[in-house]
């Protein structure tokens, strides 16, 4: 039987480590927001008028979350074992972790957006 070669995102196997990528990015972005705000308030003395660095950091965070969500989306759509799902098989485990990663990616995406939004509205360091 001649199978198509695996695509790159299929060769990357989701695991417990990749599962925590989206929430870890969210956490990192959260920390980054605080650092950015306090450093620009302390050094510039006022709210940075053009928060280029902040926008860049936010875009990078969202992109990483999107990519890991997309990989997870692809992998959770691989054909699984037929029911009944009585024993933990390799493919079922993979699909489960992929689905969880996908959901976490959705949550983290919204969370990063929510923590970034105030910058667009607040105008000073108080």
């Amino acid at each position: 039987m001649n199978r198509d070669p695996l695509k790159w995102h299929e060769r990357l196997r989701v695991s417990l480590w990749t599962l925590i990528v989206p929430p870890a990015v969210w956490a990192g972005h959260f920390l980054f927001s605080y650092l950015w705000a306090s450093i620009s308030c302390a050094k510039v003395g006022s709210f940075a008028r053009f928060p280029t660095l902040f926008v860049a950091g936010t875009v990078v965070a969202l992109a990483i979350i999107l990519v890991s969500g997309w990989i997870a989306w692809k992998q959770q759509r691989m054909t699984g074992d037929p029911p009944p799902h009585e024993s933990g098989t390799q493919i079922d485990r993979l699909r489960f972790i992929a689905k969880s990663t996908l959901l976490l990616a959705g949550l983290s995406f919204v969370a990063v957006l929510f923590s970034a939004l105030p910058v667009a509205f607040l105008s000073d360091c108080r």
């Binding site: 509205f121 607040l122 000073d124």
Partner: peptide
């Protein structure tokens, strides 16, 4: 369970944030 609450919360956030301006 997911889309409706997200939309509502985003709308509330966008509406309330300007009120926090000094």
């Amino acid at each position: 369970g997911a889309i409706f609450p997200t939309v509502v919360l985003t709308a509330l956030l966008l509406w309330a944030l300007p009120a926090m301006r000094p």
